[in-house]
């Protein structure tokens, strides 16, 4: 059930700027994200979208600007100003990060069950049977056969590894997911299945998400709102259907007209 409440935003970014020498990563980017919303960030390579995602998810500290997150009990905190321990706890419970390459988000030599159970163990779960059952449950939700629970991710296909990464992240029922090209590198049919899965999970869990992608079809499929980036700046932002059906900025129009229609 999606309830877009009038409460304050879940994540608010203000004036995020990150520069690498004379190369602009992202320049003065601001955004609001509400619970249950999926925001797509599109742009071509070098547009700054991945840099922005890293600044938002605290993987990188911006040069200027703040990122505030509203915690479960309602308090809002500056993500970069909070202590290490608190931030790492946040990243393990309330947040999810899905990497483009699942190997970056998995322990390749720990079993599938161990991978999914790790977050639970990290927050104090101490019943082996319960942990294993929860892991099995989530493998089922991401359509991985339960009899693979003791297998190592090195034996999985790319699509399965990606689904395992998703299960590993969602087991603590985070409220916000950051995804960097979640379908990149996957076959088209595998991509489609993954998108359906993500859409279903987002809806069932009331998950908010920021999805970086260069693929407008992925953006249309997953996101409610869209931000178009070019050379580090946001050139257009609005509802996904609006940006794709009535793009205003020349670059947005160029991107949209470049989609090959079946």
């Amino acid at each position: 059930m999606n309830a877009f409440s009038d409460a304050k935003p879940l994540l608010r970014a203000n004036g995020i700027t990150k520069v690498f020498g004379h190369i602009t990563g992202c320049d003065d980017v601001s955004l609001d994200l509400y619970a249950g919303e999926v925001l797509g960030i599109v742009g071509e390579s070098g547009s700054g979208k991945s840099t922005l995602l890293r600044c938002l998810s605290a993987a990188m500290t911006p040069d200027t600007g703040t990122v505030s997150y509203t915690l479960r009990h309602g308090e809002t905190k500056d993500v970069h100003a909070m202590g290490d321990a608190e931030r790492r706890m946040l990243m393990r419970t309330d947040w999810a990060f899905v990497h483009q390459n699942p190997r970056d988000g998995l322990r390749m030599h720990v079993s599938a069950g161990g991978n999914v159970g790790e977050r639970l163990m990290a927050v104090g779960e101490r019943h082996y049977g319960d942990i294993r059952a929860a892991a099995g449950d989530w493998l089922d939700k991401v359509e991985i056969a339960e009899n693979r629970i003791d297998d190592l991710p090195v034996t999985f296909s790319g699509g399965m590894q990606q689904r395992l990464q998703i299960a590993r992240n969602l087991v603590t029922r985070p409220r916000l997911a950051f995804m960097d090209e979640p379908t990149g590198g996957l076959d088209v049919s595998v991509q489609a299945r993954l998108l359906d899965l993500l859409r279903g999970l987002v809806s069932d869990l009331g998950l908010a998400a920021i999805v970086v992608t260069h693929d407008l079809a992925v953006a249309r499929h997953l996101s409610h709102r869209l931000m178009v980036m070019k050379q580090g700046r946001v050139v257009e932002t609005g509802l996904t259907d609006q940006v794709l059906d009535d793009p205003q900025h020349p670059y947005s129009q160029l991107l949209v007209s470049s989609i090959l229609r079946a």
């Binding site: 877009f4 499929h221 709102r225 609006q242």
Partner: peptide, 27 residues
């Protein structure tokens, strides 16, 4: 309005039946 608001309006107050069904192949 903020897109967030419009999404809420579309959810609860305003419905739209376009000329074409946007089909997702596996639903």
């Amino acid at each position: 309005a903020h897109p967030h608001r419009i999404l809420d309006i579309r959810r609860a107050t305003m419905g739209y039946v376009s000329q074409f069904l946007r089909v997702i192949p596996r639903v």
